[in-house]
Amino acid sequence: MTHRQAERDASAWLARLDAEGRIHADTRLEVLVGENREFAEWLKGSIERRVAVLRLLSAWQSADRLAALNVENPASRATPWRQSGLAAAAAILLFAIVAVALWRNVPADVPELEVFTANLETETGERETASLPEGSRIELNTASRVSVRIDAQTRRVELRDGEAYFDVASEPARAFTVDAGLAEVIVLGTRFAIDRRDERVTLTVIEGSVRVRGAGGSAVLTAGRSAEVDADGRIDLADLSQRDLDRATAWRRGRIYFEDVPLSQVAEEFNRYNRAKLFVHEDVADIHIGGNFRTDNVEGFVALLSDGLGLTVERGNNVLYVTR
């Protein structure tokens, strides 16, 4: 079926025409066709494309009605992340000034350093990468939230929800800490991932080393090791093979791996990424599953359950019930 493709193409075309300022409240499709030969070519002879364009165009024009709403200008909100390019430039400039000032032994009448703060969040199924002004990178997995605060002495990130991968720019003089509730991670420059759940925090180190601190103590982790911090703050260390490492961060490539994992847990994992939620009846919750799936391919997984394992899948509105 071609509907999704027709719709995507149609929305891309309309967004382009909209960018050129051609779409007004009463602009007719014929006019748009007359103004752009390429668009006319694309549209010609395809009723599927035409109806998709008409539908989206009409919706976008109706959306002019939104102007009646009293909505705050998002650009005026104090969220520097949205202007990270500018903020980064400003920060680099400031650090340069400070560095020069220190080097010349100028007395410390330099104005106080500006603080960089930002919030980033992803919706279910989204993945997003953000660069921090000092060169570190944070990659957020599905349904995750972080807040960042960087000043002259510290680089602090709070992982409030979900899972993130950190590529930390090396700065021996300014530690980079991640607060994940049950555990706090302190690093100087390295790459690692943290998964924050209700009952535990899992930390996986890909390169370099980090210190992890829970209520029950602290430990140093080197590359290829993982730590699980439980609700009591106990830290459980494990060695990971290269394959384990790849799998632990497979979400960065939009995939998840299971090896001999109970169906209930597999469902939970899929549910992190998709709006359509899997519910597993207790009769089948303990069936063990192995495999490698796209995080958004819950349909393929369900087909496997019904065709491959002979389980019954019933559909509700955004819900999939799996029973024997």
């Binding site: 719709e7 995507r8 929305s11 891309a12 309309l14 967004a15 382009r16 909209d18 960018a19 539908r55 989206l56 009409s58 919706a59 976008w60 109706s62 959306a63």
Partner: peptide, 13 residues
């Protein structure tokens, strides 16, 4: 911006 406009358009429709 253009990509998000396309996406927003589909959602609004």
């Amino acid at each position: 911006v253009e990509r998000h406009v396309g996406r927003g358009m589909r959602q609004l429709a």
